[in-house]
């Protein structure tokens, strides 16, 4: 009996384990109540009217000219419906923007995790270098930012208890930011159909108290951090030959580049975000930085998604303070 009750509890009131889950639930239940009332109203009207005015029933059927075919009646049920819908639209939209484009909070310690979806598993790498497959361990209360990409087809990262979902696309980085607020083990599903073992592409997100999480980190055989590995790969793939401080090749210095605006040869300016850096490695002549010759070879088909994410982590770790040489930003003499 108790187990059954728990099950219903779980189905109707699924765990609300992220900072946005509570707000989503309030919206959901408000809509359930409002729409439920509409359903009751319409079903009641349907039954009452059809039974009361059934053929052969002796009821007053003299036309009521004031109500019948009344334009105001049409307007009277259109406007409230429209107004109600607009309220729900605004509410849902505000919350959605908050989930996918959360306002930056100063000084917030965001835990950056790389996620690669592939047929049919999830691969994670923590900033400390720990790698996991299908399971993801997180400390409670700390904001997490996932950088997601796929090695093959479209997948979708879905944790019902967090009320979040984001498609994971090949050759592209999508991002998802959330804050777990409850400890426990929560289901992780792939929500976008991805082939044979789509339903096997599941895992658990394990949210732990901070101290237990620290202990977990200690226990795990910690590899190098992605940034450190990326530094190694930076040399291994020969990037440093041109982009290194000592290089004589006219290639942009990448120190402190991450997140900064980059003027392009075409005259436009783009932000050096993860997607731009990724595209610069894969399709180097697509968006050439102003003032540099278009000489970089494409690394497409030569570098794995994992390595690319590590290189990114390395580039991201190169902030202004670690700059070794002269000012990097060249004068933009391009048109």
């Amino acid at each position: 009996m108790a187990a059954d009750q728990d099950r219903w509890q779980l189905l109707l009131f699924p765990d609300a384990a992220s900072s946005v889950a509570g707000s989503v639930d309030i919206l959901f239940w408000t809509m359930v109540v409002v729409c439920g009332l509409i359903v009751v109203l319409v079903f009641t009207l349907l039954l009452v009217l059809s039974v009361r005015y059934r053929a052969g029933a002796r009821v007053d059927r003299t036309p009521s000219p004031k109500l019948f075919n009344n334009r105001w009646l049409e307007i009277g049920w259109t406007l409230p419906v429209l107004a109600g819908f607009l309220v729900f639209f605004g509410w849902g939209a505000a919350l959605y923007v908050d989930i996918f484009d959360p306002p930056a909070r100063d000084g917030e310690d965001v835990r950056q995790i790389n996620v690669i979806g592939k047929q049919w598993m999830w691969k994670f790498q923590h900033p400390e270098g720990i790698r996991e497959i299908n399971d993801l361990h997180l400390p409670v209360g700390q904001t997490v930012e996932l950088r997601l990409t796929s090695q093959d087809v479209i997948h979708s990262f879905f944790v019902p208890a967090f009320r979040i979902k984001q498609d994971v696309l090949p050759q592209r980085y999508t991002r998802l930011r959330f804050t777990p607020v409850k400890t426990g083990r929560f289901d992780l599903f792939c929500a976008e159909y991805c082939g044979l073992s789509h339903s096997g592409m599941v895992g658990k997100v394990v949210v732990m108290a901070p101290e237990r999480f620290q202990a977990w980190l200690q226990r795990r055989d910690r590899g190098e951090s992605p940034a450190r590995e990326g530094e190694r790969l930076f040399r291994q793939y020969g990037c440093s030959g041109c982009h290194g401080a000592a290089s004589r090749v006219n290639a942009p210095d990448l120190t402190g580049l991450y997140g900064k605006p980059v003027p392009l040869e075409s005259g436009e300016t783009v932000t050096a975000d993860a997607q731009y850096l990724r595209d610069s490695v894969m399709f180097p002549s697509r968006q050439v930085a102003a003032g540099y010759p278009d000489i970089m070879p494409s690394f497409k088909d030569q570098i794995s998604e994992e390595d690319l994410l590590k290189l990114l982590a390395y580039l991201q770790s190169l902030d202004e303070s670690s700059r070794a040489d002269a000012p990097r930003q060249k004068e933009t003499d391009a048109p």
Binding site: V20, S23, V24, L27, F28, M31, C35, I38, V39, V42, F43, L46, S50, F85, F88, F89, W91, G92, A93, L95, Y96, I99, S156, F158, P160, R163, I164, K165, A191, E192, Y193
Partner: peptide, 29 residues
């Protein structure tokens, strides 16, 4: 009459999935 009832419920739950923040949870479920 079945149409009326079922279409009503289908339509109203359509409003749920048109609501952005709820669709994040409902999409592909």
């Amino acid at each position: 009459m079945s149409f009326l009832g079922l279409f009503l419920i289908g339509g109203l739950t359509g409003v749920f999935v048109a609501t952005l923040a709820l669709d994040v949870q409902m999409h592909d479920t």
